[in-house]
Nucleic acid binder design. Structure first.
Lengths: 159, 159
DNA sequence: CCCGCTGAGTCTGTCAATCAGACCTAGCCT
DNA sequence: AGGCTAGGTCTGATTGACAGACTCAGCGGG
């Protein structure tokens, strides 16, 4: 059993994910896109993100392959662009649901949260379950352990 | 059916969650605590977070009730403090797992990710499943819809 | 043909946060 | 007394967020 203090965690994918998702407003932009808001000004009006920041976030998400910029044209208007999720972007749904779950439990106003996620087919609220590959459902969060994976490296001695 | 553009989303709990979790390094601090690293200097050495920022993040997480500061004393040393998860903090496990799942799929080095989460009892890798309250497993992410919740408010007209 | 509107930005200056590196401090050990 | 260590604080430089003004292309109305 390796001491976690001897591991180099520079290539940790959680940190890499947060480099993309952790900039201010990025998750809010994604929430908008998941809600079906796809246009610059609609997002800006709903969220009050500064224009510059919104432009930067959208460009960054496109660059990282989370969103794609699609041309569209409404009758009698010139061509514009809207932002849509890529498959990589759709894969973020669990992150959104997990954040909403935690926020709804611990941070909501007394009257309740303003957004819930429901199953399209039956209308029931959606939640996440933790499972292991052997098929067990994991209710006790203490039963989940972090373990060194295949990309594990050791740290050099300059502690 | 209400137009999402008419909704006020200022009280969205996802945005509130990101106010706590979205500051730079916060999630990395949490990853450390979930990994069992509980002391200031251990975190600093592993993660290379600037001291000041680490101090601020730990204080912020304590203030928000995600971590608690526990005194401890090793024999022959003076009293010190370590940081441990509260129940509210433990509830963030799905967020960590979701981020790690996405990162491991889309952002890992070719040799693989450095950290995996496994089931303590059987050693098998852990993943999240999306379920609805009616018991359906939701595989198609397009089958999840955001819906106005009990805390929904309308936006005023100053669009 | 000129005018103004609209969506989607860019530009500018201010203010707050992050960063690296030096400095500080309480209590233990020799 | 002097040094070491964990866990911080202080300082100055860089980067990022922000509000508000400006730009620009193309359409529709007069």
């Amino acid at each position: 059993m390796v001491d976690p203090l001897d591991l180099d965690v520079d290539n940790c994918t959680i940190a890499r994910a947060m480099e993309i998702l952790g900039e201010k407003w990025t998750i809010v932009v994604l929430r908008e896109v998941f809600t079906g808001i796809r246009r610059f000004d609609d997002m800006r009006v709903r969220t009050k993100i500064p224009r510059q920041v919104l432009a930067n976030r959208l460009a960054g998400l496109v660059e990282h392959g989370v969103l794609r910029r699609e041309p569209y044209r409404e009758p009698g208007a010139r061509e514009r662009h809207e932002y849509r999720l890529t498959e990589k972007g759709f894969d973020l749904y669990p992150v959104l649901i997990a954040l909403a779950g935690w926020g709804n439990r611990h941070l909501a106003d007394p009257e309740g949260p303003p957004i819930e996620y429901v199953h399209r087919d039956c209308g029931a609220k959606v939640h996440l379950e933790t499972h292991c590959a052997a098929g067990h459902v994991i209710d006790d969060r203490r039963a989940v352990l972090p373990r060194p994976g295949p990309g594990t490296r050791l740290r050099d001695k300059n502690r």
